[in-house]
C-alpha cells in the first residue's frame, strides 16, 4: 500500500479523505487502483486514452514522475504519491 495525497478539488470524490492507501507497484497501478476505489475521480484523473489528464501532475516522494519513468515508475510500500494541479509559476 502506498499513501496517496488527494488535493482539495478531488476530495468530494473521496468523501473528504485527504490521504488514502492504495495498492500498486507502479504509478499506473496506483492510479488505476485509486479510480477503482473512487470511480468519481476518473474524469478528472484520466485522459480517456490510458494516460493521466494533462492538468494533473503526479509526484512520487516529491519528484514529478515525468522525471522518473512516468506511469511505469515503481512504487514501494512506504512511498508517498501526491496528486497536484499542473499549475506552476508566476
Amino acid at each position: 500500500m502506498s499513501a496517496v495525497r488527494i488535493p482539495p478539488t478531488l476530495r468530494t470524490a473521496t468523501s473528504g479523505e485527504k490521504l488514502v492507501d492504495v495498492p500498486g507497484s507502479t504509478i499506473r497501478e496506483v492510479v488505476d487502483g485509486l479510480v477503482v476505489a473512487y470511480p468519481a475521480l476518473a474524469p478528472q484523473l484520466l485522459d480517456g486514452q490510458g494516460g493521466i489528464n494533462r492538468f494533473v501532475n503526479v509526484f512520487l516522494n516529491d519528484t514529478d514522475v515525468r522525471h522518473l519513468d512516468g506511469l511505469d515508475t515503481a512504487v514501494g510500500e512506504r512511498d508517498s504519491v501526491v496528486l497536484l494541479p499542473a499549475m506552476a509559476g508566476g
Partner: peptide, 11 residues
C-alpha cells in the same frame, strides 16, 4: 480563491 476546475482539473 480557487484556481482549479472541479470537473476537469483545468485552470
Amino acid at each position: 480563491p480557487s484556481y482549479v476546475c472541479s470537473a476537469c482539473f483545468g485552470p
